[in-house]
Design a protein around this nucleic acid. Structure first.
Lengths: 185, 185
DNA sequence: GAGCCCATGTAATCAGTTACATGATTAC
DNA sequence: GTAATCATGTAACTGATTACATGGGCTC
């Protein structure tokens, strides 16, 4: 079975505390996980099929509720074991790709304004996410004691908060440095 | 020609201020770029061939210096144009994959110690990189006025510094939170 | 003689994105 | 009626990693 496909383990992890459809899984990922590991439908549905074939999850069709057909997936005992094993192994992947830094690295080929606007647009994007993070954080703080899992969600949200704050601070300093260089009158 | 293949533009960007071999390109990337966009040989050599086929770079073999054969690549006028066009377009890719956050998100399935050790190992890794960043930063500060490009390198290094500082701070807080929960005696 | 750095490349595979295709229900 | 959301999936492609293969020169 897959050794290092993180998609597999994210799906197993989500199924380890409730049965979900592919669609539900996507929503969970979008709301809580995507900022540190994003996954699209094009990965979710094929991975679910493989997991069923490998007997790490089972599939059943729920005909309930009037809505469209819905396939609900449940993790098996084997699935839980595989997940647990993976969770014990050390982390190997840290992975960042910042197109903005590539463009800035070669920034002397374009104008001061273009560079400045790029950084400011970056700041706006990150500020939006930061606001979201802070909202999640406050919500979690209220329910922290209720379930043990919440602490772990909180740790990831705290990570997001720190990082997005750092982005915003960097953007401010970077713009200042650019201005100091190009607009000294 | 490729629309959004960042590898292409990193190579063009590096070639836009000096002729380099594939091996040289890899070294430049490892030292200055890899922390925000990493590329391996498996991408560099095939991309160079494609760039030659598309007449964005030219290849010549340098028989100098006694060492092994070396292929030197130069950017063409067309290559510079393509690079410049790309540099003017807005940024589209921000991309992070943190396996540690995935594992921590599902952290209630493993022991307190495992989670704590994971975070501490993360901190150690990031501290090492942070030290490197600070060294680069100091070196750049000394030569900042000499060439305009240096300011742009500096901005990326400043980014690195901020982010790696944020990682380290987060790690400390995260361990404290975990300990508060699990070791209250 | 061992190990490291220089140097180039290919092949196989895996991971991930995008576009396409379909169709029901719900809210305005 | 029309737009949004629910719901599932496939196919084609691109991007990226890993393993393999080769061989010279330099230093200890």
């Amino acid at each position: 079975m897959p050794k290092e496909n993180t998609t597999v383990y994210i799906i197993l992890g989500l199924l380890s505390h409730e049965d979900l459809s592919g669609y539900d899984i996507k929503k969970r990922i979008d709301h809580q996980i995507s900022f540190f590991w994003d996954i699209g439908y094009g990965q979710i549905y094929p991975t679910l099929s493989r997991l069923v074939a490998d007997r790490l999850v089972t599939k059943r069709t729920s005909e309930s509720s009037g809505g469209p057909e819905k396939n609900l997936y449940s993790i098996t005992h084997q699935g839980r074991e595989v997940l647990k094993e993976w969770l014990k192994t050390p982390v190997q992947k840290e992975y960042t790709k910042y197109e903005i830094l590539v463009k800035l690295f070669f920034g002397h080929a374009v104008s001061f304004e273009e560079n400045k606007e790029r950084i400011e647009a970056f700041k706006v994007r990150q500020l939006e996410t930061l606001k979201l993070m802070d909202m999640f954080k406050r919500n979690l703080e209220e329910v922290m004691d209720r379930e043990e899992e919440h602490l772990f969600y909180y740790l990831t949200v705290l990570f997001g908060e720190k990082i997005f704050q750092a982005y915003v601070q960097w953007a401010d300093e970077a713009v200042n440095l650019l201005e100091a260089r190009y607009q000294k009158e």
